[in-house]
Design a protein around this nucleic acid. Structure first.
Lengths: 219, 219
DNA sequence: GAATCGTGAATTGCATGCAAGATTTCACTT
DNA sequence: AAGTGAAATCTTGCATGCAATTCACGATTC
């Protein structure tokens, strides 16, 4: 075993929370978690502390830990932060990507074009993640890349269904096209604007999904 | 007592590390810390886990915790991330600051002009912090503001001596002037550019200080 | 009948104890 | 004398136990 039990626990719990096993507001009982994962309360407590600093949960002193409830307003702020951060990465990538990186970006983008044409949702989703990660890396700044990856993970539960919206794949690809072209041309300002536009569209798509499901739920 | 011992410990340790009590690379022995703060190892461990997730220290499984060593390259990346983040906040602030906020920004900026003229280094340093915090808040995005504040704190040890450089106060104030004016005029692009310029200048000022002290050390 | 106070249970916070892995030291070999 | 090996020691990781605080429920009073 490489990591400690607390680390593994923090990982598992984070995934479980992101996947919705523990819904927002749910109480995280130390003893229950200890039993569930067959460890004592000590590593559980350490894992909870770690998750608390990431903002995934809240530990009220002497009052236990609960999964953080993100209000719609906070979610909006997270999306805005994500968009700004990705746009910044795109801007820096346009300025400082190496030729090899640019070629790989172009290759992946073209592959995704074929996937979009074939309506390969699963493949496109994976490749999409890879594309964005490639751009984070292209900014050549570990601090920004780490934060972008963390924020993306944090938002993932709210974006999962996004590509299932009818016709989103080709639209997403054409938005990517503007981003990729700007980066390849080293046009920092255009890369920033195109990425901001793209991520904002993703956000709007998500909001429409929410409105839809809310409407169908009340119907 | 409001918080738990672990929280207080995490706070104290963070401050101590930032202040240089524990230099980068220093080993953080659980027992020693427990004795030093008159608690048992358990809260110490919890505090260390918290600090580890903030990046201030590193805990190698089964091999103890050490204060994170920032290489010059990483420091450079931190400065770049800070600059981009502040520029983003300035851009958003230009777009979404309320009239009250804009007036407060202008007032503070004018006060700082007087301080710069009087060469009041201490006052200017404090006001500088307040000015930047005002701009973070003006972005109306808690996520970005939190991250900006955290990064700023993280960099604070490397920037402390910055205003002692001869003639930096008026220069800093004139750079602020471009930022504040752009924000007040709701010119998002100019605000972004001006803030990027300002923070980059701060960074260069720091690098010169480094070079200077390195030169005097080897002389 | 509602509100408040008190008591009990339950849960968190911290200390301690023990086991497993890592580091150091010392002896032995080459 | 230097390098390798193993044993001793030290440190971390985890389990358990106890004290303190909080929450819930019920009794009592207005």
């Amino acid at each position: 075993m490489s990591g400690t039990a607390a680390d593994k626990l923090a990982d598992d719990l984070a995934r479980a929370i992101i996947e919705g096993v523990f819904p927002p507001g749910a109480r995280l009982d130390e003893q229950q978690l200890a039993q569930r994962y067959a460890v004592s309360r000590t590593p559980v407590r350490e894992a909870l502390r770690q998750l608390a600093t990431t903002g995934l949960i809240e530990v009220r002193p002497r009052r236990g830990a609960i999964v953080t409830q993100v209000t719609p307003a906070q979610l909006e702020e997270l999306f805005v932060a994500m968009a700004e951060l990705e746009a910044t990465c795109a801007r820096l990538a346009a300025l400082s990507m190496a030729p090899t990186e640019r070629r790989r970006l172009q290759d992946l983008h073209e592959t995704m074009g074929e996937m979009a044409a074939a309506n390969d949702v699963a493949g496109f989703t994976d490749a999409n993640q890879a594309l964005h990660t490639l751009i984070y890396a292209g900014a050549h700044n570990v601090v920004l890349a780490d934060w972008a990856a963390a924020t993306r993970r944090r938002l993932s539960p709210f974006r999962r269904a996004q590509f299932r919206v009818e016709g989103r794949l080709p639209k997403s690809h054409s938005e990517h096209d503007a981003v990729v072209r700007a980066i390849l041309q080293a046009d920092a300002h255009a890369a920033h604007a195109a990425m901001l536009h793209h991520v904002t569209r993703v956000e709007r798509s998500f909001e429409e999904l929410c409105a839809e499901s809310a409407a169908s739920a009340s119907a």
